[in-house]
Design a protein around this nucleic acid. Structure first.
Lengths: 196, 196
DNA sequence: GGGGATTTGTAGTCATTGATACAAAATGCC
DNA sequence: GGCATTTTGTATCAATGACTACAAATCCCC
């Protein structure tokens, strides 16, 4: 599957970059970008700084790479949830509920990696995280606009705000039950948001 | 008003601690606790590190002092909004709307100082901020429980989550109009949250 | 105007940050 | 076997973080 038929030339790597990325992803998700130092990463990966920089370029570079694979490893499957034709209130309610489930799935890595990363203090890492959250936001907006163009902005703002709140509360330690209850309460507002 | 009748003994201060606290508050609110260094503070205050530490003890100590006065300088006036006897849905809707207004009032210092401070990476500062947010949360819970004991937990979780989301979006740059629209949409869920 | 008290400015401490220089080690290719 | 290639390990780098030692300066009190 992941075997490289033609063996590389020089001295072979003593670690698997893909597994290293997965390990780093857990670290970043657990503590947040700023709180994870390169020393933390190299120690967790069992490698030395030169190997780290040769493989990933920089801390922010590794983070961007992690965000790139986050879509397939824990992020909300927006394409599935917001499939065209699905009633908007139902789809958005399902999205909020799924967000609650994912954000609370691993208490040691609570919340959304991208939403939380979008508030870190490193400009490069922050920009990468914001690009990902902005893409998700666009998906939501387009899905709503397909059937309710005039409500797309308002509803998108609303669900994105609730998801940011859910991510925050998950990181504050709230468990699945409380997050789910909040998500469902938030969905009540969606069902009757028709006027205006 | 703030004059100290008996003049102090030693060499007089060359800066006003109260005004320094106000200046530091703006800095912390604008950039967040972690992103403000002691060097930033001393430069903004026009003083040197020894004066800073003699007056405030530590960066986290100054922050705790700032949080202590935040209640009277920009934080939500919960005691006014959640006055006993006011209908719960009305009061909570007013609280969310007022949160939107305050979080967007100063674009250079958006969001809630305490909510944002509760996610910083310094344990002492984080604990101080969480104590303040926890106190506010308790106020909300008690207000609701006075008339709807069985719904207090759920509704408190919900409005706190929405406020955390509003603070996040305010910091992301959303203006008053969008935050207000979101707050009002969130209030729709409150009005019909009776069953269960 | 001398003495105790307090703040100020200069100049530093020590730990940690992200990132690197350099040579030795380990491979494939010829 | 020798050479080009790539990674590894050791040992650091410069910058920045929060914080402080120390002596000169400036006040009140007597």
């Amino acid at each position: 599957m992941t075997t490289n038929p033609p063996r590389a030339r020089g001295r072979p790597r003593r670690f698997d970059p893909e597994q290293a990325v997965a390990t780093a992803q857990r670290l970043f998700h657990a503590r947040g970008y700023d709180a994870v130092s390169v020393a933390d990463l190299t120690e967790a990966l069992g490698i030395n700084p030169p190997s780290f920089y040769a493989a990933f370029g920089s801390k922010a570079g590794l983070y961007a790479r992690i965000l790139g694979r986050y879509t397939g490893t824990g992020a909300l499957p927006l394409a599935e949830i917001l499939r065209p034709g699905r009633p908007v209130p139902e789809a958005l309610a399902a999205m909020l509920e799924e967000a609650a489930r994912r954000y609370a799935a691993d208490p040691a890595a609570a919340g959304c990696l991208a939403i939380e990363g979008a508030r870190c203090n490193d400009p490069e890492a922050r920009a990468a995280a914001r690009a990902l959250t902005a893409a998700g936001e666009d998906s939501i907006r387009r899905f709503i606009a397909a059937t309710q163009p005039e409500a797309a902005e308002r509803l998108t703002d609303y669900v994105v705000t609730v998801m940011a709140g859910l991510s925050t509360m998950a990181r504050e330690g709230q468990g699945l039950d409380r997050l789910l209850a909040t998500a469902r309460l938030a969905s009540l507002g969606l069902a009757q948001a028709r006027q205006d």
